[in-house]
Every structure is written in C-alpha cells, then in structure tokens.
Design a protein around this nucleic acid. Structure first.
Lengths: 339, 339
DNA sequence: CTGAAAGCGCTTACAG
DNA sequence: CTGAAAGCGCTTACAG
C-alpha cells in the first residue's frame, strides 16, 4: 500500500507538503502542487483512513443498525440513506442484530470506538430504552427511525401510521363496511402498534362493530395473514372487511378468501399497508397506504449529516412525522381509482 | 472518549500492560489482569478502531459493493452475508453505486485506503472488467457475486441460472406447451442473460417453436412484465406459455393475462424465477425457480472470511455454482404440487 | 512557501 | 511479569 511517505520521497518534499496538497491548502507553490499531484496520481495514492480517523477524529462513516428481519422494508430505507450519503462522500457501516441485547452491544462498539461520526438506528421493536440511551451519551448525533425513544439531541423519524390507519378504516366505513377486522403485525413492533391504535380509535369514533374477536395477531408474513383470515372468517357474524397491518398479510388474506370461495371485495373487502410495488398487480388490485421508504431514508441521511456538521451544543431534539397517503384500488370495494 | 491511557493511569500500569490484558496475552499476573479488567469495564473502554487499524493493518471490516437497483434481491443476500460476518465479529461497509464508473472509483477507495480486509462485489451488469481487475491487484481477497470476471485469486459465486432455465422450459414442453415466450430481464444483467441462454438452448434442444418474436425485453419490474405480455399476445400465433426472467415480471404477466381475459394456466401458462415469498400466494400460485439468496450471501461471507485468514500466497481462484430447484405450483398448468 | 517535530491511540519487540 | 520506546500514516502548529 502506498503511503504519504512514498509520495513525499518521490516528489522530494516533506510529508507536510504532500498533506497540504491533499487538503487543498493554499500555501503551496503551484509548481510544487503540480509535481506532487502528478506523483499522487502516478502512484494511485489513497490516504489511509485509519491514520486520518486517528488524527482527525472523523471517519466520514455513518453507522446503521437494523433488525435482521423485514429485509424489504429496511433495504428500501437503506437505499434512500445511502444515496444521500454517497453524494456527500460518506460511507455506511451496517450491523443488523438478532435481538436487543446484541443491538445494544453493537451500538456500544460503534459509538465508543471512533468508528463512526453519526448513527442511524432502526429499532421498531426496541423495549429497553434506558440501556440504549445510556450507551448514547450524546457522543455523536443519532437518528431514530420507527421507534419512539426519548433521547435528547437526537432526531426521530416516524411514519404517521396512526392517522393513516384511521383514515383507512373511515374509508371502509364510508363504503358501508361496519364489521372491520384487523390483522396485527406484532405487539412489539412500533409501526404495527400505531396502526392498531388507529384502527381501534377509528372503530369507536365511527361507531363500528367493536369486539376483540375482530383482532388477530399476525407477524407481517403472507402465511400469518392467511391463517389470521381463516380464523377471522369463523367468527359469527363474520367480518365484512379486513384491514391487514401490511401488504404481505393482505396478500395472504386474499389467498385465504380464495380458498374460502369468498369474492373480494364483494363478500369481503381487504386492505393492506405499505404499497409494495406489486400491490397494483394483484387481483383485485390492493387498496393500501403508500409508505415512501426511500424518502424516509433520504430524510434520515439528511438530518444526520446536518447534525454531524453542528457543534454538539447547537444540536436540537427533533421529531419528523411523515404523512402517508391511502391508495384506493379495487380490493376495498370502492369504484374510485386513484392515480 | 476513553483511551488506553486513561485506563493505564487509573490502574497504575503502563499502556503496554493494558494492551496485554485487552489481547489476552498470558504474560500478565492474574491480580494485575483483574484490576485492569475491572477498570476497563468501569470506564466502558472500547479500543479506538482507527489506532488498531493503523497498527495492525486489519480492520475487521468487509466492503460490500452493490448496484442501487433491485433492493430486494440484494438485501436478502446482504442479510446472509451479515449474519455470518456478525458472528465472526466483522463489520460491513456498504456502498451502492449508480453506474460502473462510480463503482470503480468506490472500489479504488475501498481497496487502497486500508479501510477493509476483504471485498464482496455484486455487479451483475459489470462491463469494464479490465478497469475493475486493475483496481484489485490482489491486495485483499475478493468475492464476486453474479458476475463472471476472470480475476485471479478471487472467489466467484454464481447461480446455475442456465440449467434451471432449461429445466423450466423442459417442464413446460412436457406439459404440451410448444410455443414458449421469454421475457428478458435486461441484456446487461448477468443472471438475466444466463436465464435467456438457457431458454434459447432448451428451445432448440426440445424442438420447440423458435422465433425472435417470442422474446421481449423487460427490466425486472412488474410493469415491464405487464407490457411485455401485452406485446407477446399480439403475436400470431400467440404463445401458449410465458417464461419471465423473474417473479416480478411474471406477476405483471399474470395481471396482463387477466386484462386480456385469458385464463392462467388454461390459455396461457406463466412461470417466473426467484421464488419470492408471496409467489405461493398468488392466483394462480406461481411456478418458479427457487433462489436461495440468504445462502448465497452466507457462502460469500464464509468464503471471504476463509481467504482473509490465508496468506496471499495460499489463496486460490474458486468458482462456486449454486444449483437451483424449480418449484412447481399452479401457474404452469401442472397438476403436480411440490412441497 | 516549506520542513522538522509532536501527537492522534494503539501494539510489540526489547530490556529488565 | 512489566515498562519505556518506537512505529503504524497521517495533520498541523511552529519556526524559518
């Protein structure tokens, strides 16, 4: 590996001068600068990041912690983050942990090792907030995605799950569905809980049938949506609509309806949440809530970068809530078609 | 940030001793070891990775380059890689680039900056192999995924797209479909090209209808599968089966068939490639080829780690081809159901 | 405009 | 078993 010494020797200058050329310092004679620049290219010299990090206490690297499930969801967000950071010459160090203990250990390693300048945490099922916040200690800026953790001087980015869920239930009720069931995504998942809360509140607000019988626990997979629907349709009276907490479960629900010889939406309206790319290509096309994952990632990257360039004293605590839009297609029984 | 000096001072030993404790050197008196260990915990000391990297020339970090499209495909692979590396105490630094020029620049930065100990490159649309190989220079071990680049001392992991595609066409022909169309995934994509090659060879081998009319270019999206199918069904005679180079396009094809009032599989058999999780939940359930993405990622991580622990002189050039299995469901018109 | 020297936080021969 | 010192590859005040 070529070092700054090799360059200095070949250019017959000191390493200080090479360093100045590298950093565009103005105090270098043009002739010297040219000579050194040429040799840097010749040798294909790239500065050693470890030496840089040690000396500057900045690594131009951002850490990204995410759960190892839900690949699609997180990969989209990650792409959004990456796109923004790449443009701004930063790298992403990822770590996906299995459980919360692992995650907290990883965060500790990330934060105190001088490895990263900022951290993005996706932890929808976080429970031990205390342990987490203790690790952080405001050493570096942090952005939380899809988890509500009251850490000072951090940014939190949330989806407006609650209101969109309410809106979706309202839409179904407007179409005459009064007995609306809900397939939950998991009680430890923040998004799932918020969607559920919106469903519950909407049910009472719009005076719909209320019963625990109408709620079934799923886990965001097609299979769980399928099973949940089979269970729900045994209720008496059976629901006239099913609101699944994500599209994958809605797809399982549609398949279950097919098996039960139920027509969707005539016998049973089914709606989802996420608006995955093939939602429009299902039969019937799925009514759902669009979630702009890339934009979420972009916002996270942007906010983090902003705070990384700020003095710790200047940082604020910020909360960004992304409004979501329902996408009305056929599966809810509406004739209306959205763009 | 706590340093080794803080620990040394507090424990009243030299930094050398702290270092020995940290590295489990046996030449430390138990009493000293205990005292130092206690203080390390007390101070929550984590060694600075930049100093470590500078000194050891190892960073316990692996680089991962991937295209910024196809989030799902790559996120699954990434999860497989990560799972394995996490267990072995390594981090992943990612970078997804827009085009090949960006990618090569990134690779150069990764390889010559002392940032990583190994590199995994997913570059299905790589064209400029020369530029790529020049960057590599055998500095660090490299694993290529889904691209055939003749770089010495590297590992290449490929899917057996070709034979599986042939097998799928054979299966359709066995079911009496003689006019089988193909929706291509993109001519610059390695997997797509191989699947296409298998299709072409199978067509002639099994004496099926051959015509350029039966091939349409798509781009791996539902929308392109939809459009391609609309175009294909205008042929005269129309195809009796469509082989889409991935599941997303197959889903688009099914929707197109629906619009055209064609029954699948009675009028038109449709098969895909990938076996995404909801393939089983489509109507009709999609016949496709299962691609074990996590396993692919796992193998990549494993191979890389193995080579990272080897002397450069001991490294070999390796090529791993992953066999793929068709999953026969309803959309091909077979009565047979696979597990 | 340029260089010698100190220092970032570690590790490791070397000496004791 | 332990410490003083050199060195990994950079940057930056300081002196000239």
């Amino acid at each position: 590996m070529t070092t700054i010494n090799d360059v200095a020797k070949k250019a017959k200058v000191s390493t200080a001068t090479v360093s100045r050329v590298l950093n565009n310092s103005d105090k270098v004679r043009p002739a010297t600068r040219d000579r050194v620049s040429t040799i840097i290219k010749e040798l294909n010299f790239v500065p050693n990041v470890n030496a840089l990090g040690l000396q500057r206490k900045k690594t131009k690297t951002v850490g990204l912690i995410f759960p190892d499930a839900s690949a699609h969801y997180f990969s989209e967000i990650m792409q959004g983050i990456n796109r923004h950071l790449f443009k701004n010459d930063h790298q992403i160090l990822i770590s996906s942990a299995h459980d919360e203990e692992e995650e907290i250990k990883t965060i500790n390693g990330f934060v105190n090792s001088g490895r990263i300048d900022g951290l993005i945490i996706m932890m929808p099922s976080a429970r031990d907030y205390k342990g987490l916040i203790d690790q952080l200690k405001n050493e570096i800026p942090v952005v939380f995605i899809a988890c509500e953790i009251d850490a000072p001087y951090s940014t939190t980015i949330l989806l407006d799950n609650y209101n969109s869920a309410k809106e979706m239930v309202h839409h179904l009720s407007q179409l005459g569905r009064k007995r609306i069931a809900f397939i939950h995504g998991g009680e430890h998942n923040y998004d799932a809980r918020e969607r559920h809360r919106g469903y519950i509140d909407a049910r009472s607000e719009y005076q719909l049938d209320e019963s625990e019988e109408l709620e079934v626990m799923g886990n965001f997979t097609e299979a769980s949506g399928f099973q949940a629907t089979l269970a729900l349709m045994k209720r008496n009276p059976a629901p006239t609509a099913i609101f699944a907490a994500n599209d994958a479960m809605a797809i399982g629900a549609i398949e279950a309806a097919r098996v039960l010889k139920l027509s969707v939406p005539a016998d049973l309206a089914i709606v989802g949440f996420d608006d995955i790319s093939l939602a429009a290509y299902l039969d019937p096309a799925l009514t759902t809530v669009h979630v702009p994952l890339r934009r979420l990632g972009h916002l996270a990257g942007e906010s983090l970068l902003k705070n990384m360039n700020l003095d710790p004293a200047e940082r604020t605590t910020e909360k960004i809530i992304i409004p979501l839009k329902p996408v009305i297609r056929r599966s809810c029984g509406s004739e209306q078609e959205s763009a």
